[in-house]
Amino acid sequence: MAKVRTLILRAPGTNCDEETAFSFEQAGSLVDSAHVNELVRGEKLLSQYQILVIPGGFTYGDDISAGKILANELRLKLGEDIQRFVDGGGLILGICNGFQVLVKAGILPPVENGKSQRLTLAGNDSNSFECRWVYLSVDQKSPCIFTRGISTLYLPVAHGEGKVMAEPETLSELNVVVRYADEGGNVQAGYPHNPNGSADNIAGICDGSGRIFALMPHPERFIRWTQHPRWAREAPRQHGDGFGIFLNAVDWVKSS
């Protein structure tokens, strides 16, 4: 069987590419990384990969608003390639800045041509960058292939603009995958469990097919037990909670 191939997209200010690549490698994928310029110039082709990842970072400094400039670049320069990639059954994962980029590019939730983006990721209620660990509850109704078989996750967030905001109607149409919760799983829990004030405690969403998934927390920062903030005081486990997300993606490609 052919190996699964994952492409990590880099742009100026991307800074979680290496650990994200490592996570996919651990999950059994071949991984390449490409600068956005290489895709725009056609030096690397999206069509040769099954998984596209937009990792965390501060692309273009998050100037103007987080992820905005890369989002426009994708929309205006790579829009067709990405649409073909999606139509061809590819998986897209956006983490943190990748979530912001996918939303603002109109890729997730998908925005029809000529329509305006109806969801955004705004500044945290605390007005601060927040680096802390959060409990996540996985919506079991979600079609997301990345979270199959997973019910809860404990992962770090590290962002200043992660607050999901939209009109109630838009919110109700979303495919919510993960919500911020407290340790007991209460998805109405407030700050700091919900670190940014997101509507409906939304931490991650997917498209209707479940193949495009984006979230603010960083699964690549918890693939091994020793990355857990309390590993030195709790009973060891084989993997970190985030590992399952990468494994699911790679296994899905293998089996389809």
């Binding site: 650990e19 927040e130 680096c131 903030p229």
Partner: peptide
């Protein structure tokens, strides 16, 4: 101060600046 630093990026964190039952 510490929470506003991204002290986890690059994925190599073993002992973080804040530890304990409530991190």
């Amino acid at each position: 101060v510490i929470r506003q630093y991204d002290h986890e990026v690059q994925g190599g964190s073993i002992l973080k600046p804040l530890v304990g039952v409530n991190n």
